[in-house]
Design a binder for these strands. Structure first.
Lengths: 121, 121
DNA sequence: GCAGTCAGTTTCCCACAGGAAACCAGGTTC
DNA sequence: GAACCTGGTTTCCTGTGGGAAACTGACTGC
């Protein structure tokens, strides 16, 4: 038994609030539908509830409703009730929501290289 | 009832395999401990099982063992049994594991601006 | 008045993620 | 031989994520 100290204790790069910020980002994109919803709205522009249902294959009304509420609370999606007959609701990414596109694209790129690393090689 | 078509059907930006690549990245970083483990190993270098336990506050042996196996299977972490007495095991990020640092840093940055957007403003 | 549309909410259910604690095996120290 | 170290595995339990289906309610068209 030489030393009791952990090999490294450089807390400067594990500052909790810095880790929290990254965790926030993950939390927002975690779950079965978030990524797909954001990318759908990213290229679909403003869409109605039922249009999103038809585009995102397999999602049910409950999850769609809940996920859209989550995104709205996080100011990533704007919900607008349209004065049409019958009443329709428009969902679209906010400018802040659009800033996610960049990071999602980075994830795409890393995901591709990861596939090559794990499968190919 | 004017038209039956969804507002937008530009499938070119929803290509499934592109979405899958991003989902892979999220999957690898999802869960309660993955981010913390990777950042811990990122700045801690090679660490022993018990050192990681002491550094990552709150994690138990079962989760640590399982998460490290996950990371190893994904070629992000290298596990080395050391010929010491008693036998110790060294865990460290692979070069491929280190490529995650860039994207995690992007997540930190986005997370910070997100906090400002949601709280401050 | 009956069927169909849009936009959800509610209920009930199941599977899986994660935690606590016990257990295991090999080795060291006293 | 008792206690403690390393590095785990196994079992049992609970909470949450997510799905299916039924229901609501305002409106339209036939």
């Amino acid at each position: 038994m030489k030393k009791k100290e952990p090999i490294v204790l450089d807390r400067s790069c594990t500052k909790d609030d810095e880790l929290l910020a990254a965790k926030d980002t993950i939390a927002i994109l975690s779950g079965k539908w978030k990524l797909q919803l954001i990318t759908t709205l990213s290229c679909g522009g403003a869409m109605q509830f039922m249009d999103i249902m038809r585009t995102v294959d397999g999602i049910g009304t409950k999850m769609l409703s809940k996920e859209l509420q989550d995104l709205e609370i996080n100011l990533l999606v704007k919900r607008t009730v349209m004065e049409t007959r019958p009443v329709t609701v428009k969902y679209e990414l906010t400018p802040h929501g659009h800033t996610l596109e960049r990071i999602i694209n980075e994830m795409r790129i890393w995901g591709r290289t990861h596939r090559k690393e794990v499968l190919g090689k």
